[in-house]
């Protein structure tokens, strides 16, 4: 699950009080282990999202139990449920209000592709209005599947060139 971090190495006899590492490694380590989700809980998947936050599946193990409904304080928007055309502009607005760096998990069939609702009112996939990083299939996905998606997102984030993005004006 979590591999040994070869980026950060510290030997007190040699370095003393100084830790030498790649900046990317440190920044991504901090980001992945405190990924605060913004739960865009729209429909049934929101119930599984709540189950992930509850005691049995415990998303707090991954540092993500702080579900911030205020987009300014969130890192990752989990779109859980069917996005209708009426709701789509609000989802986009909330995405825009989130501060960088931000990621999106499309949870469930409805958020990924419109799901089983091929109708006049349903946006066929939230990736038509926001860029999505991880898609989770299932209707609804099991909580373990959502945790797997979070882990995949963590793996994706840990490969990002964070330092370059930070120092780009």
């Amino acid at each position: 699950m979590v591999s040994a971090n070869a980026e950060l190495a510290y030997n007190s006899k040699i370095e003393g009080d100084v830790v030498v590492s790649r900046l990317d490694a440190v920044i991504n380590w901090i980001r992945t282990n405190s990924m605060w989700p913004m739960p865009m809980g729209l429909a049934c998947c929101a119930i599984e999202l709540m189950a992930v936050a509850a005691a049995r599946f415990d998303i707090a193990r991954f540092g993500a139990e702080v579900m911030r409904f205020s987009p300014r304080q969130a890192d990752c928007m989990i779109v859980a449920g069917t996005v209708t055309y009426k709701m789509a502009p609000q989802v986009r607005r909330i995405y825009d209000q989130m501060a960088s760096p931000k990621w999106v998990i499309a949870m469930g069939a409805c958020a990924s592709t419109g799901g089983m609702y091929r109708s006049y009112a349903v946006l066929q996939g939230v990736d038509r209005i926001v860029p999505v990083d991880v898609y989770v299939s299932g209707c609804p996905p099991r909580p373990e599947a959502l945790l797997d998606a979070l882990i995949k997102l963590q793996a994706k984030v840990s490969r990002e060139p964070a330092a370059r993005q930070l120092f780009r004006a």
């Binding site: 055309y85 009426k86 789509a88 502009p89 986009r92 607005r93 825009d96 419109g114 091929r118 109708s119 006049y120 009112a121 349903v122 946006l123 066929q124 038509r128 209005i129």
Partner: peptide, 25 residues
């Protein structure tokens, strides 16, 4: 059932994302 094409309810978001209300495939 698939619906007919029209504009998104919010003009700002429609302009920003170039998304429209499309007929479902």
């Amino acid at each position: 059932l698939a619906g007919l094409e029209t504009v998104l309810p919010d003009a700002e978001v429609a302009a920003e994302t170039a998304a429209k209300v499309q007929a479902a495939p």
